[in-house]
Design a protein around this nucleic acid. Structure first.
Lengths: 215, 215
DNA sequence: GAGTGTATCAAACACTTGTTTGAAGTCAAC
DNA sequence: GTTGACTTCAAACAAGTGTTTGATACACTC
């Protein structure tokens, strides 16, 4: 007889990759219990039902993600451009590229696109902190005069660029071919997205000023 | 007795929204046949099996999308910045926002993220033409000296910004609240993404030149 | 060592799934 | 009117689904 916690943990870590690959619906409790080498009834015994196991798995994914790749903390006085680069690198590592364990990023993005009942918890614990950290960085970059609506659009432009390499990974692979695709590591993408964004902000900030203080 | 083509068409148009909302696996042939008001066996009779109906639905979605919102054609001499704005507007209308009929964009993006056997056809007929049109516009915008790898990254930055409003729609809604979210129409998004991209390209082009022709 | 709470196990259960079947209906051609 | 090809229909089928059950095995307490 094993401890209850052992079996729970083994079920979660076995179910994670399967849920991430196939989604909740297409995953069967039989496959999970066989791969975890536990009895079929264990899932219901320890979690109640399949959905509760799924929610526990998503929760575990979020926690593990934040532990393994924490949001950076900066010394006071760190230039905001450097902060932006740090944030984008962390974000790409977290969800956009295949960081070990692979399934965590996959499961999180699955929840992003087709939210289940885990959604509220997810926005609160995951999306919102990222959103606000980016907003803070943009405040420093753009100054206080830029309206919040504009900052929001810029935030989504940044996140959108990062997530694209997760969502459309199969299509990108098909478009570029395997050898070109292999070059796309975190560093390359992070440098590009940071440079692209900073370049855009530089021009936007200049335009913003010319609008506010016309010639 | 109805004509064979009538029933086929009705099945496709009924199945489309359901597949788009729930995905292939979670959609049942019983729901489709009931909503289409045809007999349960009709799906197998007319399409062979459920998967063939799905493939036909995806195919129909792609065709409808290209017919209703065709890629723009421009007079010779049209400034590339204007082309870029036109392209982004079309792309947002096609997949990113809820253009009627809603399910077409949803189904297409579903296929983008979790490609099924319809994927190859999809890249060839849909993704590749968009990719090459954007590449052409960027050639005009950036000049011939910018390496293809750089153009690819810019393309993905543009597409990523657009698709984000489709993929992360629920999260964006949760982050902003309904009243702020309601402001996000195609025009606003298209203007922002175009301005953001052109601003970035302006700076990148300048840097590219300074690197190539140092002081 | 009997008793107790807990975890595991094989088997069965109730239900849903996609698919098949054979009869019945429908329309056009002859 | 009969034939024949095509379509629809209700019913059944076989396989797979999540869940429940009652028995069994284990570790610990008294």
């Amino acid at each position: 007889m094993h401890s209850s916690e052992d079996t729970r943990q083994r079920l979660i870590e076995t179910a994670g990759p399967i849920f991430a690959e196939k989604g909740f619906r297409a995953t069967t409790v039989r496959e999970i219990s066989e791969r975890a080498e536990v009895n079929l009834a264990s899932i219901n015994y320890h979690f109640g039902d399949k959905e509760s196991l799924y929610l526990a798995t998503v929760h575990h994914a979020g926690l593990t993600c934040q532990q393994r790749i924490p949001l950076p903390e900066w010394e006071p006085g760190t230039p905001p451009a450097q902060k932006l680069h740090g944030f984008i690198t962390v974000f790409l590592n977290r969800v956009a590229v295949d960081h070990e364990p692979v399934w965590i990023g996959q499961l999180i993005t699955r929840e992003l696109i087709y939210p289940t009942r885990a959604c509220e918890h997810f926005v609160r614990e995951f999306a919102r902190p990222n959103f606000e950290m980016l907003d803070q960085i943009l405040c420093e970059l753009l100054g206080p005069d830029v309206p919040p609506t504009k900052r929001q659009l810029v935030i989504f432009s940044i996140i959108g660029q990062c997530l694209h390499y997760r969502f459309c990974r199969p299509v990108i692979h098909a478009l570029l071919g395997p050898e070109e695709f292999a070059k796309y590591n975190v560093e390359l993408l992070s440098n590009h997205i940071t440079a692209f964004t900073l370049a855009a902000l530089a021009t936007l900030r200049r335009d913003e000023r010319t609008i506010e203080v016309p010639s």
